[in-house]
Design a protein around this nucleic acid. Structure first.
Lengths: 202, 202
DNA sequence: CGGTGGGCTGAACGAGTGTTCAGTGTCGCG
DNA sequence: CGCGACACTGAACACTCGTTCAGCCCACCG
């Protein structure tokens, strides 16, 4: 069951893309070079020829994924309107990865490991969240709390939760968790949650 | 570097425990039967003798983990005081797994897969969350919202986020994310978040 | 034209995998 | 005591893994 990949890519690019998909779907350890080679329509030896070793391939795939993610992040980073920032908090990462199931699966696996690439990605997300919160704070949009260390994490958990537990959502919703309609509803609910919390005022 | 395991367990139990730790730390695919056997102080053949196959061992480890988790859950499930339920929302799962780093790592990996055991665990967590929310709602503690489908997930994401991203927290905090003091502060912050949200009232 | 170099291959290697198997020791029961 | 049942072992099996290597093809350059 070879994955269908565009023919108009170099073999090197086809290999990297095939590896990206396999790593996302089943993890690095469970994916053999021969499987990747078959997906890419080449031989295992060519994989080594281009990337030196399996580790080299893993690094190349990681780098490409990080770069792809950063590009999406920069496109959003130009948005400095506090109100929009607040409204899109829950949707920021989802806008980047909402349309890319393979990327979501890849991130899901990457976030669990403590390899350099994963570490960098996570720290970056946390930083973006902190910057956004700081902007919101300057404009007086944030409710003061006794201990503000946890706010970035709370925001991040809500934003990433639907990605990390996508399979659970899929099951519980009985449909695609990243369907545009579903995503829209969820973002609205998250914004409401950020604004007022869950509990009744006493 | 064989892991230190109690001598007063049957070989079968030692094997299961060693497998539990290895699976949690490095995943199933990256763990060989010989490594597990060495940790348990026995031979690879004995692993097969007791569990039939590696798959059988995986299933046994999964079952044991699920059982252990359920036991913790039942101990909490008897608590029906609405106020306590609200106060402990963020800490419910953390109280079960807060003192057990191996269990946390195991869950972290398990939640990503869609094997039966992982699926059952997650669905169970979601169900517990729903029941807790329903109790809270009956006592009038929940703020009415337009779309309440997402509430259980929001609660679950906050509760599970610190476990799923424990390595990130560890890095960002510069200390143990499940240190009792840290855990206490985080639970308080989460309760505040649930109560009032993050944003300033207009 | 010959030559050079890079993309690319199949076959092979050694290491490690899960699993099988014949056989050893050691209990408890009739 | 004898005997079956059971826990347990080392050696071997077939297989897959990542990696190596000699060599093929073909575009490009002098």
């Amino acid at each position: 069951m070879a994955a269908v990949l565009p023919d108009d890519l170099t073999a090197r690019a086809r290999i990297r893309e095939a590896a990206f998909r396999r790593f996302a779907a089943q993890g690095v350890a469970a994916t053999s070079l021969r499987t990747i080679a078959e997906d890419a329509g080449t031989s295992a030896a060519l994989v080594v020829h281009h990337f030196g070793s399996k580790d080299g391939l893993v690094r190349a795939v990681d780098d490409a994924a990080v770069a792809r993610f950063r590009t999406g992040l920069e496109a959003i980073g130009t948005d400095t309107n506090p109100e929009t920032v607040a409204a899109s908090f829950g949707a920021v990462f989802e806008r980047i990865i909402g349309g890319d199931p393979v990327m979501r699966a890849y991130l899901r696996r990457a976030l669990l490991q403590d390899e350099p690439a994963s570490t960098a990605l996570l720290d970056e997300m946390l930083e973006v969240t902190r910057v956004g919160l700081a902007m919101l704070d300057e404009s007086g949009g944030l409710r003061p709390v006794a201990d503000d260390r946890w706010r970035p994490f709370q925001v991040l958990f809500i934003a990433l939760g639907s990605m990390l537990l996508e399979p659970l959502l899929q099951r519980a919703l009985g449909g695609h968790a990243y369907d545009p309609d579903v995503l829209h509803d969820r973002s609205a609910a998250n914004l409401d949650f950020f604004a007022h919390g869950l509990l009744q005022d006493p």
